[in-house]
Nucleic acid binder design. Structure first.
Length: 679
RNA sequence: GGCGAGAUAGCUCAGCUGGUUAGAGCGUUUGAUUCAUAAUCAAGAGGUCCCGGGUUCAAGUCCCGGUCUCGCUACCA
């Protein structure tokens, strides 16, 4: 294992279009904070950088929707996010932002270096241009009718109603979302990073050189490399972002994914004039903490950028976590299904460590996990209160009761005393191994085991009984209990910094270096302890109920909002003649089978009364083929045939679509002759 | 459909390069205890290690096939 001189820890830049929630914390910021605090405690040279990611189209759209500037949006959320992190004790050395002047210059220079080295390719393409607003339109800024489901409010990149991935030219009746004008196609030039040039290197570097990466990370990289890398655009036609620093690039900015990771570099520059040694000296170990959605950027794209530049180190590891769910459902900002950090800090003052503990103990390290308020309560009451808080309190109260709060002078140790103390060094070793390999759940258990050890020691030695016959022996016992407490304060520091601080306050000692963990001479006999205070309070059922009720209220409010949103406005009036053109018949399904190599399609053979024919329909997700045979449905029989997956689909089966996207067949309420006209 | 990751005790998870009776925490049962926030300590119960084949002296662990969950991707109304 290579030994490094210093460490650079980066945490994924939160996107400044919303606040931070528990999913972000469990996935990225709590692990990175534990890792950083651990290295600092060990006396390593380490810096931890992060900041807000403030460019990109979604921010401009949010700004437009709220009638403010993009700068207003990012100022608001950058402030909120920064405060919230600070409140939870996430100890970044710097929390910067990608709208900072340093970042503009850094990202701009970075692009220019790659440009001058010929690391980009240029490509001219046709793109929609808004003649009224006099600008090119990002995919997201073009609306029109979805070619698949006829939703009239589809975006240029996707239709949110049917979920189709679209390209702007797929849209029927495209409109500019800015001016409402009909956009025109116009030539535009963009720069691309040819990832395929770096493929041989990346293949060797990751697949051969970093087999130790987590399975999910390694697997996803391998999947991408095996599919073959494609050039990726690094510029966009947009007015919010960092201008492309090249002649003839007016109105173009760096694509947000290109500028964002450079934010790690800019933040380091703002932090220290010695930033280069953290980025360019091969003796620096760089680790990127991210969520699984960011694996490709951090393992393939950003390393390709750094390598193309030529001067920078590549990450040693990218410990990406999976996702955290909330009460059985995916966390969603737009559906307001989340526990927001800034709200938690307000509603649970002084309980930062409880959240840190719950999220670390249940972190989605190997697969998606579920956060429930019930479990949050259980972790607090049965582990923090009962095991950790209780042990510290016992040691403190007993010492105050028998020795007026003075650290007693121990006598000779028994074998059992020695055995107990001998358990500390192995716990230290295990904890270190776990943290250094990003197994924070296990590491936290190691730390908690010190408190368990302490509880067991007190139960076995029974100082409250022994005191009656042999008060001197109790001196030794309580000295050892206090040593265990002091050890505990060191071990939990990376995980529960607020609690560690409180324990040190009670012990009335200064900070201990990490290397002292495992020692049994941390407390000086004769020194005076502070007053015992409870480290954690029980969380009552009502608190859990309140939070669940709050989530439930959010869900209902959101469903109500969605119900309104999803009931489309009535279409324009048509004549009776128009209606008369449609020939809708009751038909009976005779046979049904899956269309091979598709997820949603069924091939149905139906009896329309007129004839027997085949229709392809996208209901495979909602209906089993066998269950359809014999069912009667409504069919638009005179719709022009269309070939789908090589099958002529002769007509359309009428269905109702739920807001969730679920499709429901519309059959007659009672048995009807096939071929009966509907109208 | 393709790719990736998961599937182990009621719950949340460990089990690294295959090797004695499959582990931990929480929950549960019983007992002990009272210094402590009805906290603690001990003992017990609880597992066809997703299913089916195979390799091996030996498989939770390796190989093949399948099922289910999550994600990415393709197709698609």
């Amino acid at each position: 294992m290579k030994k490094f001189k210093r460490h650079l820890v980066t945490s994924a830049l939160p996107y400044a279009n919303g606040p931070v929630h528990i999913g972000h914390l469990a996935g990225v910021y709590i692990p990175s904070d534990i890792y950083t605090r651990y290295l600092r405690l060990r006396g390593e040279d380490v810096i931890s950088v992060c900041g807000s990611d403030e460019h990109g189209v979604p921010i401009t759209i949010k700004a437009r929707a709220e009638g403010v500037t993009p700068q207003d949006i990012v100022d608001k959320y950058h402030g909120m996010i920064k405060e919230a992190f600070k409140g939870l004790g996430i100890a970044f050395d710097i929390y910067s932002r990608t709208t900072s002047p340093t970042h503009y210059k850094t990202a701009s220079d970075f692009f220019r270096t790659l440009y001058d080295k010929g690391e980009f390719t240029e490509q001219v393409s046709m793109q929609y241009f808004d003649p009224e607003a006099n600008q090119f339109l990002a995919d997201r800024y073009i609306t029109g009718t979805c070619p698949h489901c006829s939703n009239e409010a589809a975006y240029g990149d996707q239709c949110e109603k049917c979920g189709s991935t679209l390209s702007p030219t797929d849209l029927l009746n495209p409109r500019s979302a800015i001016s409402g004008a009909v956009p025109v196609m116009k030539e535009t030039k963009h720069w691309y990073l040819p990832l395929e040039r770096h493929e041989p290197f990346l293949r060797e570097w990751i697949l051969e050189g970093h087999k130790e990466w987590k399975a999910n990370v390694y697997g996803q990289c391998k999947s991408w490399l095996d599919l073959g890398l494609q050039p990726r655009a690094v510029s966009r036609d947009l007015d919010w972002g960092i201008p492309v620093p090249v002649e003839g690039a007016q109105g173009k900015v760096l694509y947000v994914w290109f500028d964002a990771p450079i934010g790690y570099i800019s933040a380091t520059k703002e932090l220290t004039p010695e930033w280069e040694k953290y980025w360019k000296d091969p003796e620096t170990k760089m680790v990127h903490f991210i969520g699984k959605d960011n694996i490709v950027f951090h393992c393939i794209v950003f390393p390709a950028m750094l390598r193309a530049h030529g001067e920078y180190n590549l990450p040693e590891n990218v410990p990406a976590n999976e996702f955290l769910n909330l009460e059985g459902d995916k966390i969603s900002t737009s559906r307001n299904w989340a526990v927001w950090l800034h709200e938690y800090l307000e509603e649970f003052p002084g309980k930062q460590d409880v959240l840190r503990y719950a999220l670390c103990a249940n972190a989605p390290e190997t697969k998606d996990n579920d956060f429930t308020w019930k479990e949050f309560q259980t972790r607090n009451n049965n582990e923090l209160v009962a095991v950790l808080g209780n042990f510290v309190n016992r040691a403190m109260v007993l010492t105050h009761k028998y020795f007026e709060g003075k650290v007693p002078q121990p006598g000779a140790l028994t074998d059992y005393d020695r055995e107990t103390l001998a358990e500390l060094p192995p716990l230290k070793a295990s904890l270190e191994d776990n943290v250094e390999n990003f197994r924070f759940r296990e590491a936290l258990k190691d730390a908690m085991n010190i408190a368990r050890l302490g509880n067991k020691y007190l139960a076995d030695t029974e100082p409250w009984k022994v005191y009656k016959e042999d008060p001197d022996r109790v001196k030794t016992i309580l000295k050892i209990a206090l040593e265990i407490t002091a050890n505990l304060s060191i071990a939990i520091e990376p995980f529960l910094p607020f609690t560690a601080e409180k324990i040190l306050g009670m012990l009335n000692t200064g900070h201990f270096n990490w290397e002292r963990l495992g020692a049994s001479d941390l407390m000086t006999p004769g020194s005076i302890l502070g007053q015992p205070a409870l480290l954690f309070d029980k969380i009552e059922d009502e608190v859990v109920e309140t939070q669940l009720a709050k989530l439930d209220a959010n869900r209902k409010a959101n469903e109500a909002a969605n119900a309104n949103k999803n009931v489309e406005a009535q279409k324009e009036l048509i004549s009776f003649d128009d209606f008369g053109k449609m020939d809708i018949r009751v038909s009976t399904i005779l046979a049904a089978e899956r269309v091979p190599k598709t997820k949603k399609l069924l091939k149905l053979t139906i009896d329309t009364g007129i004839d027997k024919r085949e229709i392809v329909s996208g209901i495979a997700e909602y209906y089993q083929p066998e269950a359809l045979i014999g069912r009667q449905v409504q069919v638009l029989v005179n719709l022009a045939p269309r070939e789908i997956k090589g099958i002529q689909s002769q007509g359309m089966i009428l269905m109702a679509e739920e807001p969730s996207g679920k499709l429901v067949l519309m059959g007659p309420g009672e048995k009807v002759t096939s071929g009966a006209k509907i109208g």
